[in-house]
Lab assay of single mutants.
Amino acid sequence: EHQTACDSYWTSVHPEYWTKRHVWEWLQFCCDQYKLDTNCISFCNFNISGLQLCSMTQEEFVEAAGLCGEYLYFILQNIRTQG
């Protein structure tokens, strides 16, 4: 039997508790949902936990993801305040 992915999907966990996999799933979702250019995102810069992600500043997001960084930063802040 296969496990259902939704059990541990990033949407069901507060961002501060995300694993590295959750972070990448979220990035992929943002790219799909908001039509962000994946080429401007250095995924290696996001090989981090949710706690590390949440402690990043807006400037660090821009450094890590170029033009997309600002969008990603605000998307994350939205999730954190709603969560």
Rank of each mutant, 00 (worst) to 15 (best):
G66S: 04
G66D: 04
Y73H: 08
L72H: 03
K20C: 06
A65S: 09
Y17S: 14
T4W: 07
L36S: 00
L51T: 13
F29R: 06
C30Y: 01
E60S: 07
S42Y: 00
P15F: 05
H2Q: 10
H14D: 09
I48V: 11
V62Q: 10
I41A: 04
I48E: 02
T4G: 09
W24F: 15
H22A: 06
T19P: 01
Q77V: 05
K35E: 14
Y71M: 14
C54R: 01
I75C: 14
G69M: 00
C54I: 11
D37Q: 07
C31G: 02
N78I: 05
C31T: 12
D32H: 14
S55I: 05
T81L: 10
Q3D: 08
A64P: 00
R21I: 01
R80P: 01
Q52D: 08
S49T: 14
E63D: 13
L76C: 05
E16Q: 13
S42Q: 12
L72D: 01
Q52T: 12
N39G: 10
N39Q: 13
T4L: 12
F74Q: 15
E60I: 00
I75S: 15
C54L: 10
E60Y: 05
C44K: 11
E59I: 10
N47S: 06
Y34T: 00
S8F: 07
I79F: 10
N78H: 05
L67Y: 15
T57K: 09
W18L: 02
Q28R: 11
Q58W: 01
H22R: 03
E59W: 07
A5F: 09
T19C: 15
F74K: 15
I75K: 15
T19W: 00
F61S: 04
E25Q: 12
E25N: 06
F29H: 09
L51K: 14
P15D: 04
E25T: 06
N39V: 07
E60W: 13
L67W: 12
G66N: 06
W26A: 00
A64F: 03
K35Y: 04
L53A: 01
R80Q: 08
V13D: 05
A5T: 12
G69D: 01
H2F: 14
E63G: 09
F46W: 08
H2W: 08
G66E: 01
F61N: 03
N47V: 02
Q28N: 14
F61T: 00
C40M: 11
L72K: 03
I41C: 03
D32W: 06
C68Q: 15
G69W: 03
A64M: 07
I48H: 08
L53V: 03
T81Q: 13
E1G: 05
N47P: 05
A65M: 07
Q52G: 03
C31K: 06
L67R: 14
N45E: 11
C44D: 15
L67I: 11
E25S: 09
K35S: 09
G66M: 00
N39R: 09
N78Y: 02
N78V: 05
E60T: 01
I48Q: 01
H22K: 08
G83W: 12
Q3Y: 08
L36W: 12
F74S: 15
C31L: 07
G83Y: 08
F74W: 10
F46D: 05
F46G: 05
G83F: 07
N39E: 09
V23C: 01
M56E: 03
N45G: 05
C44L: 10
G83A: 13
Y73T: 00
G66C: 00
C54Y: 00
G69S: 00
N47G: 06
E16R: 14
T4D: 12
Q33L: 04
E25P: 00
E70C: 05
A65Y: 10
N78K: 14
S42A: 11
Y71D: 15
A64G: 09
F43K: 13
R80A: 05
K35A: 12
S55D: 11
S55Q: 13
Q28D: 14
F29A: 09
A5Y: 08
I79P: 04
C44A: 14
V13I: 14
E16M: 10
G66W: 00
V62S: 09
Y73L: 02
K35L: 07
V13G: 01
Y73R: 01
A65W: 11
E70F: 06
F46Q: 04
W24H: 13
E60G: 05
I79V: 10
A64I: 06
Q58P: 09
T38M: 12
Q3V: 01
F46E: 05
S42P: 09
L36R: 03
L72G: 02
G66Y: 00
E60D: 14
I75M: 13
I79Y: 15
L27Y: 11
I75H: 15
E1A: 05
F43H: 10
N45R: 13
G66V: 01
T4M: 12
Q58V: 12
L53G: 02
S42N: 15
Q77R: 10
T57Y: 01
C40Y: 08
N39Y: 10
W24C: 15
N45I: 06
V23I: 13
C54H: 04
T81F: 06
E59D: 08
Q3P: 09
E60K: 07
A5S: 13
N78L: 03
Y17P: 01
S42F: 04
S42C: 08
W26E: 01
S55R: 12
Q3R: 09
L53H: 02
C40N: 05
E63H: 08
K35F: 04
W18E: 02
L27T: 04
A65E: 00
